[in-house]
Amino acid sequence: MEKGMESTILQCDGVTVDFDGFKAVQGMNFRLEKGELRFLIGPNGAGKTTMLDVICGKVKPTIGKVLFGGKVDITRKKEHQIAELGIGRKFQTPSIFPTLTVFENLEIAMRQNRSVLAALRAKLRAEEQERIEAQLEMIGLQEKASWRAGGLSHGEKQWLEIGMMLLQEPEILLLDEPVAGMTDNETEKTGELLRAISQTQSIVVVEHDMEFVRNFASKVTVMHEGKLLKEGSMEEVQRDDRVAEVYLGKRRDADAGRSTA
């Protein structure tokens, strides 16, 4: 996991997803390096979320292959197996466990042996308690550790979910619009956090908030109608004519999409 050892952690080759005739993703190639913070953008319906679904196993590609860590083929693996290998997913809407307490949410998300027997025998060790408490402090919920997670505000739920994901210690984090519904201040904080995480882990972020992308992206992948349109630095992408066309032509749609998101 050392930084600087540039190697591919995730590779998607010719991924096509066919939903009963509708090709949400068509022959998409995607490569992610270790310790990279990658932004995946594109107009509505470009297939960004479907791409994340393919990587985390929620959707199986019709054609194509997904390789994790350069050698493990995860194309046909089940969701929980992929998660165990080290790919974490945060969905667009905060999905936490509402009847568990904030602490319990973090406790079960924490990296651990997830077999039934292990769960039966599991005791909260002091070291685990410390890690959870440190996480609680980082996401600013230490005062609400014993609250039912369902009683948190929208923003707090987002943070709890991010905290759960960090304790899960995945090698790749897949985030779908993590700053949706956050204030400018919170957005800034989230960006800083993502940057810090990318020191040790790799991240793919699907985002509509261009301001946010501009501030934090080093490399951007643009998708359009299920295909790769352009990949490169933010400057390169902004200079690209086709990207401009897709975005200008669809600007209104994208804005409409954002305001309803």
Binding site: C56, K58, K78, E79, H80, A83, E84, G88, R89, S95, I96, F97, P98, T99, L100, E104, N105, E107, I108, A109, R114, S115, V116, A119, L120, R121, A122, M164, Q168
Partner: peptide, 26 residues
């Protein structure tokens, strides 16, 4: 036990449990 917490988590959101890495079926 933590087993019980996972059970409740399954009740709350079976899919989410999957993406954390548990196999809810077992």
């Amino acid at each position: 036990s933590r087993f019980g917490k996972v059970l409740r988590a399954i009740r709350d959101g079976e899919n989410r449990v999957r993406f954390i890495g548990y196999n809810p079926a077992i």
